[in-house]
Write a protein that binds this DNA or RNA. Structure first.
Ligand SMILES: [Mn+2]
Ligand SMILES: [Mn+2]
Ligand SMILES: [Mn+2]
Ligand SMILES: [Mn+2]
Lengths: 151, 151
DNA sequence: CAATATTTTTAGCACATGCTAACTTGACAT
DNA sequence: ATGTCAAGTTAGCATGTGCTAAAAATATTG
């Protein structure tokens, strides 16, 4: 029945772009947990010298079994090293990723603060938003956060 | 070995908040695909009178089998109606959600544009960011986008 | 109408991410 | 040294989200 009638220029669904964007967002989600883990592990090591399964379980509000499972994947991905009953460490690759993620997290957080949002809200939304910012967007965020910071 | 030494006030891991934020982000991810689907279905119906499996598969860059699977879940969730070999429609609840999501999508997109980002980048990043904006953040985005819009 | 092409569905698979329950290991206090 | 408790592991399960390949239904076209 629908042949091509009603151009209906209201929404303009650019199908090519939508498909690209969806694919990109899926890719971001695939790396999201890994990013949060290496970031948390780096933070824990900074604060307590070591990152243990229990610490991560508390931080992420999941069970130790889930942490174990995830750590096994991260190890396979070459981001962490882990021996049984020992605490978890980052590989060089993991440390590098953690650094990038911490910087990115910081940028997004400061940007949201600069919009006048509360620490609580900014910190909450940062946790999700950080994984979906392209380098261009991140640059824009950083610029504005820096400008607002020099108040 | 680690007892409580080195306050190391560099990062300040507020464990309570981190756990809360992670839980929240997980919840957002659980509804993300549903939101994008109802939005896409609404757009397709606006443009073509109907939303078919193939259309959605093209839009999301997945296989028709995947769309079928997802539609079954959405139906169980009461967001769409679907009969075999027929096109897909929104329930009232689905239409309502689609409206909200479209408004939110629009707000985030206009906000990113107002930062000087290209349409391409803004549209890409919006697709992920939109699902992680609290009402407060959304209000801030809208305010700034509106201000910039009146140029 | 009949042949063909497209669309939709189904079955069966895989992997990520979560859980609980049971078991093992390690740490620590008496 | 031993007994207890916390921490870590494992097995087994569920759900979400993707895939391919094959079958069934529908649409198009000669
Ligand atoms: Mn995060
Ligand atoms: Mn996300
Ligand atoms: Mn959207
Ligand atoms: Mn989206």
């Amino acid at each position: 029945m629908p042949k091509n009638e009603s151009p209906s220029q209201a929404i303009r669904l650019n199908e090519e772009h939508v498909a690209e964007n969806m694919t990109r967002t899926r890719e971001e989600h695939a790396t999201e947990l890994a990013e949060d883990y290496v970031e948390a592990i780096a933070d824990l090591i900074d604060e307590h010298r070591e990152a243990r399964v229990t610490d991560l379980a508390r931080l992420f509000a999941v069970t130790p079994a889930t942490v174990n499972n995830t750590i096994a994947r991260l190890q396979k991905a070459g981001l962490v090293t882990s021996e049984k009953y020992r605490s978890i460490f980052l590989t060089n690759s993991g440390r590098e990723l953690a650094e990038q993620c911490k910087a990115r997290h910081e940028t997004v957080y400061r940007f949201l603060l600069s919009l006048g949002l509360s620490h609580k809200i900014a910190s909450r939304d940062t946790e999700g938003i950080e994984h979906h910012c392209s380098p261009e967007t991140l640059r824009a965020f950083k610029k504005l956060a820096d400008e607002a910071g020099s108040s």
